[in-house]
Structures are given as C-alpha cells and as structure tokens.
Design a protein around this nucleic acid. Sequence first.
DNA 1: TCTCCGATTAGAC
DNA 2: CTAACGGTCTAATCGGAGA
Length: 423
Amino acid sequence: MKQQLALIDCNNFYVSCERLFRPDIRKTPVVVLSNNDGCVVSRSNEAKAIGIRMGQPWFECKELAKEHGVLALSSNYALYADLSNRVMSILSTYSPRHEVYSIDECFVDLTGTAKLRDVSYQMREHVINWSGIPVCVGIGPTKTLAKLANFVAKRHPRSKGVFNYNDLNEQRQAKLLGQITVDEVWGVGRRISKRLAEHNIHTVEELRHAHTPTLRSEFGVVMEKTQRELQGIACIDLQEVVPDKQQIISSRSFGSMVQDVDVLKDAMSTFVANACAKLRAQESHAALIQVFLHTNRFRKDLPQYMPCLAIPLPYPTNDSLAVNKWAGFLVEQMYKPEYQYKKAGIVLSEISPVTHYQGDLLAPEITETGSTKLMTAIDQLNQRFGRGAVKISTQGAHKGWQMKQERKSPCYTTNWNELPHAQ
DNA sequence: TCTCCGATTAGAC
DNA sequence: CTAACGGTCTAATCGGAGA
C-alpha cells in the first residue's frame, strides 16, 4: 500500500499575501524584500519573468526593477504569519496526520482518501476561496517525492495546480525524473549539486539509480536517505508534534553603522526581549546565552571584527531582565570603540522545559508556567496591545540601529489601527 | 580506544 | 547625497581532548 502524501505549498506566498489587500497590484510585477530591505525573498510570476533572482540583493536589481515598473515591498511578517495560520487550519481539516513544515508549506497524509484526485482539486479551491491564497498540491509516496511532485504542479500549467507522482508507471517516472535536474531535489543545494556533477550525476533519475555505497561514503547519510526517498522508500517521518526549539536566536542588521556602545546595548535589549518572549511562549528556560557583534562583512575597505562571547547563567531562566543584565555585560566586554558595527544578536541555548526546573534558593519565584509574575504580565500586555507595548530597559529608545523598512504594508489582519479606513 | 564536545558545513525557506 | 547584501533553525560530520 503506497502512501499518498501531499505537500501543499503556497504560490509566491509573501507576494500573494500583499496582493490580497491590494487588488490594484494583481497584474503588476511585485517583490517582497527581506529585513532591512536587503534581499528579494518573494517574487510574483511577472518579477520572475523579468529575471529578478531569489535572494538577490535589492540594490543589485533595483535598476532593472525600476525599468519594468516593479513594486518592492518591505516584509510584513505579522501579516504573513496570520494568513499562514488561516491556510494551515484549512489544510488540517483534511487529515489529522499533517505537518506544518514552514510558513507556506504543509504535508498532509491523504492515504486512504477516496476520490483522491477530486479531493486534491477541492482542497486547492477550498484554500483559495477561504483564505485568498493560491496553492499547489504535490502528491507522492515519500516527502521528497511529494515535494518534487509539487514542483511539477507549479511548473506545468497543464497540471492545474495538482500533480500525483503515484499515478505514474515506472516508465513515466523515469521519463519525468530524467527531465529534472538534481538541484530541484529537497536536501540537494548548490554545493552538493556541483559535487554530484563531478560524479556525472545531473538528473534526478541519475541520482535515483546511482551506486548507493559510493553515494553514502561520498555524501553521507543524508544523501542516502534522499536517494531511498526518491526510490519510493520513506525515510523521513511526518513530524506531527512541533518539537521545542533547542536554540533561539534574535539578531538584526542595523539600518546604518553603529559605533556607540549604548546604542548597541539598546539594540541588544530589544533582541533579548524578543528571544525571551519566544522562550516563554514554549515554556522553557535557557541555561546558556551567547552574544555576538558583527562589522559589515561586505565592506572590504573597513576593518573587520566579529566577536562572540558566551556565559552560563547562574540558574536556567526565561526572565528578560536577568538575561538583559548578562547580555549588556557581554556587550561591554566585547565592545571596541574603533569599529563600526552592522549587526548584533543573542543566542539562547541549553534549553529545557520549565517542568524540569530545579529550584534555587537565589532564583526569583516563578509560577506554574515557569515565568515570574512580571514576565507573565508583560507577555499578556504585549499580546493584547501589540509587541513592544511594554518594554524592558531602553529597548529601542536610542535611534540609529533600527532596520530600514521603507515600503511596509499595513498589518491588515492583525491591527485595527492599520486598516486603511481607520486612518 | 571510546566518548564527548565544539566548530564547521550544508541545507531549507 | 551615498551606500546599499536576511534571519532562524536543524542535523551531520570531523578532529581534538579527555576518560
């Protein structure tokens, strides 16, 4: 009995979210930029056709974009996260066995579904009608083949957004896989494609039938699993429960260079607040914090300095104030006034669930959720009135580090005050 | 010799 | 006017230190 595993992937997700509330830009080429308006991270079909590449630095394609009347928008993650939740909750009704794989992708196990073909098209219509987001559906016996099937559904308009690899006989499988290059395979990136090419493996079909022991010894266990998955043998399980994070990072590139230690500490307090809020959201404590500073690595003309300092906490905690004290101390330890800093951040690690907490006489008192009453109150207020309603330390009072976001759309679905008619 | 650990690499999106 | 290139996260692997 072959598994019928579907991978549903939203089309040009961030751009589709932006277009939902801007019907006027449905035909204009649109791109969405990464934080700090740095790189292109989502493109409409028109923008792709013009030749704007995924991940391309914005300053590099700005001219080309201008020539073609491309609209560039800053990323609005509150909007994308909210729409993603809507899409995922629709998809989850199709099977309890599903995995939200990323902000715009979900695996759904449709094994045993009657009239699978009809259901797949219905699912697609359902998501478009209820959330406004267009998606494609790829189905296969393994995760890797479901992803590949999704790629086929996206690329061939004749598929009408749905492609089931399981419907192909051996001969048609071979023909299809022979037309797809290895870099389209999940888990095969730029470097590995290059190395595979040295072994004369260019197409997915060649990878599927490559000599397994050689593949294993040359490329490791991950590649062997990928090959087995391409052969239809499932090696990567569906992750139905979302595991707790083992590491939480909050970092940002600055809008411009920063030299003042107080500005760095101000930025750091914002990162600490974000990271600790995430830690509390999953009801965990961290036992180790790491803080890092970066000069601008692209400025070859400037001296480079990228220190990183870690400190074990006296007791595991998720208290923003406690963490901020140490983070500020670490910044001072590493800071050298002669450098211009472009990026900084904090890493929380050695994370454990609050239920494992061993009481410490010196530690502040915490409640059942593992946080102090103060932190719980801050989280509630920020949830109710928006992130940053209650701040720790200076957190953003100093100007000069905030990221560039010159083209951000309103938070249409999560903030009443940003609805156009409310202004 | 075995195990543990940190650093490095590769990938996803 | 000029400079302008993201952020988070995981798993595997490797080499050295220490038991």
